[in-house]
Design a protein around this nucleic acid. Structure first.
Length: 492
RNA sequence: CGGGAGGUAGUUCAGCCCGGUAGAAUACCUGGUUUGGGACCAGGGGGUCGCAGGUUCGAAUCCUGUCCUCCCGACCA
């Protein structure tokens, strides 16, 4: 089988699929729109999940778990308060199979086993969670309620793509209830900061924090905050969202509390989530035509050691040395694998681990033993150097930190080079078509104009940056006055 | 959901037009030689050709239906 990865320049979609599949992250499954996350890919997700989970707990949140099935009536309650929720869902209508009398060995849905009320497989858990919170909240003393759930959700997407948009995906969803509007907004922004912190410092992907325009906002939210990242093909990707829900859900599900003055009030709510889509972002932000490039802080495997030997005698000497190196690395919390599989030759292993994005590779042979050195190869720059075995663990620890930083810097430099200010419609279209990336342009603030721009160019407003500087100008399309630039891009 | 391309060995694919014993490469197993950037030789195992019907003496091949995948578009809390 060809192990070649399609060039980014040739076909970006195919390049992406190659990276995910040949990098052992995931594969297609026999189930419509769903993927299988392989052990290596899942180990990556676990590392991301654990880091995020710790950040949630450090900010006062706890985990819980709510049901997969949501009675249809609960969705109707939600729909009443905010129309426009997407309705592509999987729906359970029956609860039993039976042998098909017409076809031996086949099963059929038992028509006798029809559910009185259909169950929706959760596309998100607001409905079931707020219906539950109603029973948990009576007094201001019960607030704030700061709960997160790690779960799978199902959305019957028309078109799917590994990690970026699959029918079933893994995510976390935080749902919080507060006594005041100010506190809820503070929570929304705090969690956006947590996401930005994680994506930038662990995934080494720079993001822009901002607020969504009305068109891009979550249907039940007053405000949707987001972090937007830029991929190597110039398209933007929403990496996480944090919603200020106002009292919309409290009103839909009748969640009230007595305040200090014994007055009944609706609670103020937030919700926030990131998903396995982050893995897609990771792949498209850093990888190259040789395969995945993973940031050391979340890589399932940080260091791989490949022995190069002729005969058992050399192998034994190398084994002994590697044993010492491995112990030292592990004592520093560095994950390391010694690949002494004799069936694969060194060259094959080099290519294999590059494809899987292992940050650092050590190659050690008789020649190196004699000189008390080891060959150290960086995945990100492909640089190789010969390093003394004395103090090698410190050197590697330092190198991993350097790689983490270098990946972030490289992605940041790329993004900064791909934010373009434009002041005319012609320039706007030209930049989108020829350069891509974020386009900073004036917009008159109306949904109609945004829609018209999307219609003409497929570009949407990714966000209105939080730290925006105010600047008078005229809308790129309508010419109406505007007070600030917003970021447009074509997006995933 | 519209348009296009596909589903044959673990994997990538040929065979299909023009029906007649199921193929290649690679991976895997055995033995040997190898090992500093995807090794080589010899031998071997492995597939109800996505599924269900139909036509036919005979179907991977023709027809109908259906499921699934990929690409483009629409959709996307």
């Amino acid at each position: 089988m060809s192990k070649e990865i399609t060039s980014r320049a040739t076909d970006y979609s195919q390049w992406y699929n190659d990276l995910v599949i040949k990098g052992e992250l995931a594969d297609y499954s026999a189930v419509r729109g769903c993927m299988v996350i392989k052990p290596y890919g899942f180990a990556l997700w676990e590392n991301m999940r654990d880091a995020l989970d710790k950040m949630f707990k450090d900010t006062g949140h706890v985990n819980a778990y709510f049901p997969l099935f949501v009675p249809k009536s609960l969705f109707e309650a939600e729909e009443k308060n905010a129309e426009g929720f997407a309705k592509e869902c999987a729906i359970v209508t029956h609860y039993r199979l039976k042998a098909d009398p017409a076809k031996k060995g086949k099963l059929m849905v038992d028509p006798e086993a029809k559910l009185e009320e259909e169950l929706v497989v959760r596309p998100t858990s607001e409905a079931i969670i707020w219906n539950t919170y109603k029973n948990w909240i009576q007094s201001y003393r019960d607030l704030p309620l700061l709960i997160n759930q790690w779960a799978n959700v199902v959305r019957w997407e028309m078109r799917t793509r590994l990690f970026l948009r699959t029918a079933e995906f893994l995510w976390q969803e935080g749902h919080t209830a507060h006594a005041t509007k100010e506190e809820a907004i503070e929570e929304t922004v705090k969690m956006l900061d947590v996401y930005a912190d994680f994506v930038e410092n662990w995934m080494a992907v720079p993001v822009i924090k901002g607020v969504k325009s009305a068109n891009e906002r979550f249907a039940g939210a007053e405000d949707t905050y987001c972090i937007e990242a830029l991929m190597q093909d110039g398209k933007a990707l929403q990496a996480g969202t944090s919603h200020f829900l106002g009292q919309n859900f409290a009103k839909a599900f009748d969640v009230k509390f007595s305040d200090k003055e014994n007055k009944l009030e609706y609670v103020w709510a937030t919700s926030w989530g990131v998903s396995t889509r982050l893995i897609g972002a990771l792949v498209m932000a850093h990888s190259d035509d040789q395969g995945l490039v993973l940031p050391p802080k979340i890589a399932p495997l940080q260091v791989v050691i490949v022995p190069i030997f002729k005969g058992e005698e050399q192998k034994a000497a190398i084994d002994a040395k590697v044993q010492a190196i491995t112990t030292e690395l592990k004592s520093k919390g560095i994950s390391v694998k010694y690949d002494d599989n004799d069936n694969a030759r060194p060259g094959w292993k080099f290519a294999e681990y590059e494809m899987k994005g292992v940050p650092v590779r050590l190659a050690i042979g008789a020649r190196d033993l004699a000189n008390n050195v080891v060959e150290v190869a960086r995945r990100d720059t492909k640089e190789k150097s010969t390093v003394s075995l004395d103090g090698i663990a410190d050197y590697i620890a330092q190198l991993l930190a350097t790689i983490q930083q270098a990946l972030y810097q490289k992605a940041l430099t790329f993004r900064e080079a791909n934010i373009t200010k434009v002041d005319s419609w012609d320039a706007f279209v030209k930049v989108l078509d020829e350069k891509g990336g974020f386009v900073a342009a004036h917009w008159d603030g109306t949904p109609e104009t945004e829609e018209a721009i999307k219609e003409k160019t497929k570009a949407t407003i990714r966000c209105i940056p939080l730290q925006n500087t105010l600047e008078a100008g005229n809308c790129i399309l309508s010419g109406q006055p505007s007070t600030q630039r917003v970021l447009f891009a074509r997006a995933y």
